[in-house]
């Protein structure tokens, strides 16, 4: 049976240039200038999974993103990979949204898209790394969810997911509609082909404001965000050093003992 699939994607600073990212000490926000932006890596795996489900069962893949206008590039890339439709929720009043406000906005946009069978998300983003949005989204949509999925199979109105735990995994049966968040082991995202790139330039990215999705100003952005970020700072990475002075024999024994103790032997 064909499925209505929705994939949430976020544009983030390219993690390969993580060393170029600085934090503004005054505003406590990330300085993104000069750092190329990409689709959050795990979100690409979510999109790939949706495309594979569509290839196997039929249906439609819609990507939804919330972000500034530049995030249109991320939407275009998703279309080039093969998504059928792309929606960008973009509105100044959404600036400063925490995970709760983001999940609420996404849920309203997804309702406006129409019925859905499955929403796929990356398990976390490389910039925020909370992993909170997918479960919050599921709550707002009133559907079951499972996080950190590395294997997914759909059969009729059910999904069987394998989700990673710290040691081992759990097998979960879900009733659709549902929300799943995925980790990188689930698949290898495809590279956009030339025909995909040409197609992406024929599908306009739909841009929605908070009015379009029926979100009030009080629910959006900083006003709708109960989280308070009290401080953000760069972690200084420094190696711990110990110096041993003495003859080689003793130095070797000392070193051996240090290694054994670190390994927990």
């Amino acid at each position: 049976m064909p499925y209505e699939l929705v994939v949430c994607i976020k544009q983030v600073p390219d993690p390969r240039f993580i060393s170029r990212i600085r934090i503004n000490p005054e505003t406590k926000t990330i300085i993104r200038e000069g750092v190329p932006a990409v689709i959050n890596p795990l979100d690409k795996h979510a999109l790939e999974e949706a495309l594979r489900i569509r290839e196997q069962h039929g249906g439609r893949v819609t990507v939804v993103s919330m972000g500034p206008l530049q995030a249109e590039d991320a939407c275009k890339e998703a279309l080039a990979m093969g998504a059928d439709r792309a929606v960008l929720i973009t509105d100044r009043r959404l600036a400063g949204s925490d995970t709760l406000a983001t999940a609420l906005a996404l849920s309203k946009a997804i309702r406006r898209i129409g019925g859905f069978d499955l929403v796929l998300c990356g398990a976390e983003t490389v910039d925020g790394s909370t992993g909170q949005v997918p479960p919050q989204l599921a709550e707002f949509l009133g559907v079951p969810h499972v996080t950190r999925v590395f294997s997914l199979a759909l059969k009729g109105r059910e999904a069987e997911a394998k989700a990673a735990l710290e040691y081992g995994y759990r097998r979960v049966l879900l009733r659709l509609p549902a929300v799943v968040s995925v980790i990188r082991e689930i698949n290898e995202p495809r590279i956009p082909s030339v025909s995909g790139i040409l197609r992406a330039h024929q599908i306009p990215v739909e841009k929605w404001t908070i009015e379009d999705i029926g979100l009030s100003e009080d629910e959006a952005g900083i006003k709708g965000s109960p989280t308070i970020v009290s401080d953000v700072y760069e972690i200084e990475v420094r190696r711990k050093r110990e110096v041993f002075q003495g003859p080689p024999e003793e130095a070797a024994r000392w070193l051996f003992e240090r290694i054994v103790s670190v390994l927990g032997g």
């Binding site: 080039a80 590279i191 956009p192 030339v194 790139i197 040409l198 330039h201």
Partner: peptide, 19 residues
Amino acid sequence: TSKQEMLRKAAREFAEREV
């Protein structure tokens, strides 16, 4: 053009990941 930029990205991804 934006198409050409996307093409460069795709070719680079192919080269770095597969080649």
